[in-house]
């Protein structure tokens, strides 16, 4: 432990500045303080506040926004006296009985289960290709990483045009292969697929970057050894590259799963800020939370949904880690 300076292990003159060898050293905490304060205010406090909100019934209803704020202030002190607010599980009850919450979960799971595997597989292929000693490698890398530095709302609007039924590029492509045009944005059942395609594209650059760094950590000598033994590209890929990249692939899949569960900003621009073409068919978990909070001003319900989403992501990620450990052993 760096925080405890022990005399026995330090022989140089610096030791003298730490007079009592086993006493807690305050100095490192001072350096960390600004960061800790920031985290406490902007991360830790909101997390616990959401947890608290989720158990307050009637919050935001039928009171107006301002009144609700005043009430939470009172709640901080003691109880919800006089504000018609009570502690309870009512928010959870409402959310779990709400059919839109369940359709939001269904959409979210569909999104996660499609986007994560497909984007990871594609990203592995692209990362391996970008890792080759090819001409214009720098150019290709820039092109592939461009989506990352572009605002997702702006990009979403571009995709809206790509998905357009009459003159969108995607339908044009389908038509050249003899496939009939698909009304990606106008037909409710196709909406989710449009979002999934966009999601795959959106998540690829970060995935490729992480996988590239993983690839660059693989020692060249493994490839040389395999080549001397006569291994061909495909065998090298499946027997050496992929297994050695497995830790990075696992990391990428967990990160992508978490970020895909939070899908929201890609739906917003595609459907002018509503959840799908009918306004209700494409709720996702975060979209549901957003609507409860900002549109319906039901803070308690939003908080309850957020808490539920947290536990779903938590369980899913744990399962994923357990599964990966099992596979790697």
């Amino acid at each position: 432990m760096a925080l405890f300076k022990k005399k026995a292990t330090n022989t140089n003159a610096e030791v003298d500045t730490f007079k009592s060898p086993n006493k807690l050293n305050i100095e490192p905490f001072l350096y960390l303080l600004p960061f800790i304060i920031g985290i406490l205010i902007f991360t830790i406090y909101p997390i616990f506040n959401v947890l608290r909100y989720s158990f307050i019934e009637g919050l935001g209803h039928p009171l107006g926004k301002q009144l609700a704020e005043r009430c939470t202030f009172i709640l901080t002190d003691a109880s919800a006296k006089g504000c018609d607010l009570t502690w309870g599980l009512g928010n959870f009850e409402y959310v779990l009985k709400d059919k839109y919450f369940w359709s939001a979960l269904k959409n979210t799971f569909q999104y996660v289960l499609c986007v994560v595997p497909v984007s990871t597989c594609l990203a592995i292929i692209f990362a391996v290709l970008l890792n080759q000693k090819i001409k214009l490698r720098g150019l290709f890398q820039t092109v592939f990483f461009l989506p990352m530095v572009t605002s997702s709302i702006a990009v979403g609007i571009c995709w809206k045009y790509l998905f357009n039924y009459n003159y969108g590029f995607i339908n044009y492509l389908l038509n050249t292969f003899g496939i009939a045009s698909v009304d990606w944005l106008g037909q409710a059942s196709m909406n989710i697929w449009a979002v999934i395609i966009y999601g795959i594209w959106d998540i690829m650059p970060m995935t490729i970057i992480l996988l590239l760094s993983g690839l660059q950590n693989i020692d060249e000598m493994y490839y040389t050894a395999a080549k001397v033994d006569g291994a061909k590209t495909l065998r090298i890929f499946f027997r050496i590259t992929v297994p050695l990249l497995a830790p990075t692939i696992g990391l990428v899949m967990i990160l992508n799963t978490i970020s895909c569960f939070k899908v929201y900003s890609s739906i917003f621009p595609l459907f002018n800020g509503s959840a799908g073409i009918t306004g209700k068919n494409l709720y996702t978990a975060v979209f549901y939370i957003y609507n409860q909070f900002f549109i319906n001003s039901k803070y308690g319900r939003a908080a309850a949904a957020a808490v539920l989403l947290f536990f779903i992501i938590f369980a899913f990620t744990m399962f994923q880690k357990w599964f990966q450990n099992k596979v790697s052993n």
Binding site: T224, A225, V228, L244, A246
Partner: peptide, 28 residues
Amino acid sequence: PDKRGVGLVFQNYALYPHMTVLQNICFP
């Protein structure tokens, strides 16, 4: 290299870390 029939031992051995000893020896 693969058509010369040479066996090469690298300075850092280059044993595939994800394979067992048997799998390593079997790989060629």
